[in-house]
Design a protein around this nucleic acid. Structure first.
Length: 799
RNA sequence: GCCGGUGUGGCGGAAUUGGCAGACGCAAGGGACUUAAAAUCCCUCGGAGUAACAUCCGUGCCGGUUCGAGCCCGGCCACCGGCACCA
């Protein structure tokens, strides 16, 4: 058979689309399987090989499950709001709507050319008014429940993009989009109270099937710690200074306190602080420090003592000094700490630099650790002396603090509330009206979607003002509550909004009465298997789980957790082993591969490269090897025998078993290797039966479907192999009656013995000793022990 | 610094979870077919050693457990990813 992928690939893609064989059926009697891949941002650059690897995994699983009789939902869509389209629009003076539509069209054609079995009738586009209507609806619900609020705080601000960034978007102090240094800026911004769901986000992790490293990364990001809040009385004032600590039991070792430079108490007591000049100078210095300096010069402790203000250590009444220093952050805990230089490296460094007393309160408490977290005997600690376990000493101290009314047990999270607005045009408008009388009022539900107005100029304003603020007809409105003149919110939502619930919309993408029909949600949710990149663990995964938990509390989704199982594919590196990037010039364009070698070869190769979860470099020669494999498969179609070689039955049934389980475990590389080995056996036999060959094709079909369809048709088979029944294996045929086992002497493999799998030890031992080579090695020696594992090894220990 | 991961031929990678290390593919070398090339087919292919066997060495490094270790334990080294003055 001639395998001309250039003609057969488009041919089958068209036939699949016409026959609608990949469309999911709501409420089907078949068992449902919802496979989800992270929908792409439709960039102008088009598809990347990374997309191919990311989608090919669940593509193969979905195709196999369909053949196994599942009702599969395998959807695709576009996460199309965001800066690149807007920046391109600014540069070319084209409306982002047009840019986005073109990109989606282009991207869809590319995806189709790879032959993915997506259900194209359910495509979602986050920038579609019918979609973002419901994103706004969810926002209003969050607002109603007090989970969306405005606050004036220091925010991460990118001076280049002129936008406020969330913590997740400014990891490492760099803007996630343009990689310039992020600065701290005081601004009034929107927040979503994700911290209120911190415990639920942690609990949910216990019921889902996530890889261990993903779970741990999410847990670390949420960063829950247990400790206590303690109030220290200021000397000679009614005021207290509250701190958070994870080790309240070290209170006897506290010899000073530190406040963050921005702490509000400083201004309140500026009349009592006698060195306010020095304090102000230090504060100015801190604000000037770039993120680079803060990250790289962290080990040098700096600070200023507050003269004229001191605190009282509540456990011993001692007067202790208060400092301000930038190693204490305003954004965590209370913005102030009790310093225990005896057992905390940072406090120790500071105490050394400023000549402060150091008291040991835990015997052997190791100062090489940043904050000592272990057990140890309490000393110099009054009523805690002699206690050995930190849990006991902490409990006792917390009880004492609570009794005195100066402290309480508490928890803290590293995760902060989600900064939820951008000063950009191409995003969902936040559906809020600012009324001088009524305050903030939600746009009525029946007025959704609140559409983006047409604008001439997409440039953000100076000082971080949204382009929407310049559109008077948009800004000026009537308060929905009192009817008086009011102004609209002009910020838009961040890109993560639309992707936080898109998997729900797939279950009912054209509904205009609800974001999805409850019955359809009940049928399809939750997502059985979600595959995507590791880079989304701390953002998209946490955000979307948060929204889903919230919708669950509203009673509008049927499951607590959205995703039952999560997996992550590894990167495809450039041929040089480096991360692919335009600047390195090592980017491989998947469309070039499709046009030169075909989609089937591309699909086979990205899965054959190595462990699906690991990164591995692209290699053109290896890819050609996959083409060679498919060519050999095609050629075999012309050399079939009527009666198949019975010797091929065992390797065939072993292959069915292996490929069936390997696909479920995402071990695509070994599944393909198994098929290659089976093809080798077929060719060596020279007498491959038609049905044996068809079985092989079915196993290969999820990976290289175009070729398999073409051969299926050429063999005169009806319908599509893509929806033919998946082969079953006969367990008896997968088990060998006789096996070759290693015969060892003193643990060294010396010979190979062909023996019945179920032979007993006496028989194996006799046969083993009878082997000439083994007989020679044990001659004149005494067998002190014989180890036999049926079907595995035989080992003689001799002296 | 903390958390997670990885380390196997010339290369990408296998190894039923403690049982013949190197499946499968690539590259390389040799041969067949061809006027020639491409394509295809056959053979070799971890290192030392041998005419060929035999034998020895070999899974980042050092040590341990075991009849037996790529896999388990202890201690290092290197690289990758994430977090990072989080009290």
């Amino acid at each position: 058979m001639e395998y001309n992928f250039k003609t057969i690939e488009p041919k089958w893609q068209t036939r699949w689309e016409k026959a609608k064989i990949f469309e999911a059926v709501d409420f089907s009697e078949k068992p449902k399987f919802y496979a989800l891949v992270e929908f792409p941002y439709p960039s102008g650059a088009g598809m990347h090989v990374g997309h191919i690897k990311a989608y090919s995994g669940l593509e193969v699983v979905s195709r196999k499950r369909r053949m196994q009789g599942y009702n599969v939902l395998f959807p695709i869509g576009f996460d199309a709001f965001g800066l690149p389209a807007e920046n391109y629009a600014i540069k070319t003076n084209t409306h982002p709507r047009i840019v986005t539509d073109n990109n989606i069209k282009h991207f869809s054609e590319q995806l189709k050319s790879v032959g993915y079995s997506f259900d194209w009738s359910r495509v979602v586009d986050t920038t579609d008014e019918d979609y973002y209507k419901w994103t706004q609806w969810i926002f209003l619900k969050l607002f109603e429940k007090g989970l969306a609020y405005r606050d004036k705080t220091f925010v991460n601000y990118c001076p280049s993009c002129k936008v406020v960034l969330s913590n997740e978007d400014s990891q490492g102090g760099k803007c996630d989009i343009c990689h310039s240094d992020v600065i701290q800026k005081e601004k009034e911004v929107w927040y979503l109270k994700i911290t209120e769901y911190a415990d639920k986000l942690l609990e949910g992790l216990e019921e889902v099937d996530f890889p261990e490293n993903v779970r741990i990364q999410e847990e670390n990001w949420i960063g829950k710690s247990k400790g206590a809040f303690v109030k220290f009385l200021l000397d000679g004032a009614e005021e207290t200074l509250e701190i958070y600590t994870t080790r309240p039991d070290t209170l006897f070792g506290v010899t000073f306190m530190v406040m963050a430079p921005e702490h509000p108490l400083i201004d309140k007591y500026k009349d009592r602080i006698t060195n306010m000049d020095a304090v102000e100078a230090y504060r100015a210095e801190c604000q000037k420090k770039s993120e680079f300096e803060r990250v790289n010069l962290v080990k040098d402790k700096t600070g200023v003592k507050l003269e004229g203000l001191s605190a009282i250590n509540p456990v011993n009444g001692k007067k202790i000094p208060i400092f301000i220093a930038d190693y204490v952050m305003m954004g965590y805990g209370t913005g102030a700490i009790m310093a225990v230089p005896g057992h905390d490296q940072r406090d120790y460094d500071f105490a050394k630099a400023f000549g402060i007393e150091i008291i040991e309160v835990i015997k052997g408490g190791d100062l090489t650790k940043e904050a000592y977290a272990g057990d140890g005997e309490m000393v110099n600690s009054g009523f805690l002396n002699g206690l050995m376990k930190k849990s006991e000493s902490i409990d006792k101290m917390v009880a004492w603090l609570e009794e005195k009314g100066i402290g309480r047990a508490g928890v803290q999270y590293k995760m902060k509330d989600w900064a939820f607005n951008r000063q950009r045009y191409w995003g969902e408008p936040i559906p809020i009206v600012h009324c001088p009388v009524c305050g903030m009022v939600g746009v009525p539900y029946d007025e959704l979607p609140l559409r983006l107005p047409p604008v001439e100029n997409f440039q953000p304003g100076e000082d971080g003002e949204s382009p929407l603020a310049k559109i008077d007809s948009f800004v000026n409105c009537v308060c929905p509550k009192c009817g008086g003149p009011a102004k609209r919110e002009t910020d838009t939502m961040p890109q993560w909004a639309g992707s936080s619930w898109y998997f729900l919309r797939y279950t009912d993408p054209h509904n205009d009465k609800a974001f999805a029909d409850p019955e359809k949600l009940k049928y399809w949710m939750n997502v059985d298997w979600y595959n995507g990149g590791m880079e989304h663990v701390t953002r998209h995964m946490i955000y979307s789980r948060f929204w889903h938990h919230f919708l669950y509390d509203l009673g509008v989704v049927p499951t607590f957790e959205p995703y039952k199982k999560r997996t992550a594919q590894g990167l495809i590196l450039g041929p040089d082993g480096q991360k692919m990037s335009k600047s390195r010039g090592n980017v491989v364009d998947p469309l070039d591969v499709v046009s030169e070698f075909g989609a089937d070869t591309l699909r086979t190769y990205v899965l054959f490269m190595g462990d699906y979860g690991a990164s591995s470099p692209w290699n053109d020669a290896s890819m050609r090897g996959c083409k060679r494999f498919l060519d050999r498969v095609a050629r075999l179609a012309d050399r079939l025998a009527e009666a198949g070689d019975p010797k091929l039955e065992s390797p065939l049934h072993k292959a069915i078993k292996k490929v069936t389980s390997d696909i479920e475990e995402m071990k695509f590389n070994t599944a393909i290797a198994t098929l290659m080995a089976l093809l080798n056996d077929f060719e060596a036999s020279g007498s491959v039966g038609r049905e044996q060959y068809v079985t092989f094709l079915k196993l290969l079909c999820p990976i290289a479907p175009h070729l398999c369809e073409e051969i299926w048709e050429s063999l005169g088979k009806e319908g599509f192999i893509s929806v033919a029944a998946w082969p079953e294996y006969d367990e008896a045929k997968t088990v060998d009656r006789t096996v070759e086992i290693s015969v060892q002497v003193n643990g060294k493999p010396r010979e190979v013995l062909s023996i019945a799998v179920d032979a007993d030890e006496a028989e194996a031992s006799a046969l083993g000793q009878a082997l000439p080579k083994i007989a020679g090695l044990i001659a004149g020696k005494k067998i002190v022990k014989t180890i036999y594992r049926a079907g595995k090894i035989l080992n003689f220990v001799v002296k």
